[in-house]
């Protein structure tokens, strides 16, 4: 299992080398969105309207951060559970989204859309929210301020730690990690 440092926006050649289990430290701009923001983004696409950020090569982080204390760009900011975004993710992937960061397994539809579009899903460590917040250099609400913690934020991150959970080849660490454990136990 390899270790990479990648810059966003993600390019096809970045994604082609990634395999499940690889550790990745992401740097650059990533965007935050949870269920409520996803619904609005997908509605904009359906209506043929412009999105609040350039989705080509973008990475979306599923997070609703805690409020920032004075002197910090953001409060604790760990991943939320990704399956709630599964109904929306394929549309975003088909429109150029290249990476998603969250926690927990994805649906077959999302995995198929990742294969179809050369995209990747990163698992961040749920509950390691203060640690992850320290990799955020700046944070700015760019859309849907009315949603509070669920607003879309533009984050600049430096060495954001995550693990490749689904690669563009259709592999799923949530299945294979468990299968490997069971296999080892039986030997």
């Amino acid at each position: 299992m390899a270790e990479y440092r990648l810059e966003t926006p993600l390019k096809d050649e970045d994604i082609e080398k990634l395999k499940i289990g690889d550790t990745v430290y992401l740097s650059g701009v990533i965007y935050t969105a949870r269920d409520a923001a996803h619904k609005r983004l997908v509605d904009l696409i359906k209506d043929g309207k412009e999105l609040p950020f350039d989705i080509k090569g973008a990475v979306i982080y599923y997070v609703g951060p805690a409020p920032a204390k004075p002197g910090y760009p953001i409060g604790s900011a760990g991943p939320t559970t990704s399956y709630r975004m599964d109904p929306y993710a394929p549309v975003l992937l088909d429109n150029g989204l290249k990476g998603m960061i969250g926690k927990g397994p994805r649906s077959k539809e999302v995995i198929d859309a990742m294969v179809r579009n050369k995209a990747v899903y990163f698992a961040a460590t749920g509950g390691a929210a203060a640690l992850i917040a320290l990799s955020v250099v700046s944070a700015e609400v760019i859309a849907y301020e009315d949603l509070g913690t669920e607003a879309v934020r533009k984050l600049v991150v430096k060495d954001f730690p995550c693990i490749v959970a689904n690669d563009m080849y259709g592999n799923d660490m949530y299945k294979e990690g468990v299968e490997q454990f069971i296999k080892r136990g039986k030997i």
Binding site: G64, A66, S76, G78, G127, L131
Partner: peptide
């Protein structure tokens, strides 16, 4: 990472998880 997160939370008085 989880163990390190405990230390950061305690020192900086930042919530362990953003979902408080």
């Amino acid at each position: 990472m989880i163990l390190k997160n405990h230390d950061i939370s305690r020192e900086k008085k930042m919530p362990l998880c953003q979902d408080t």
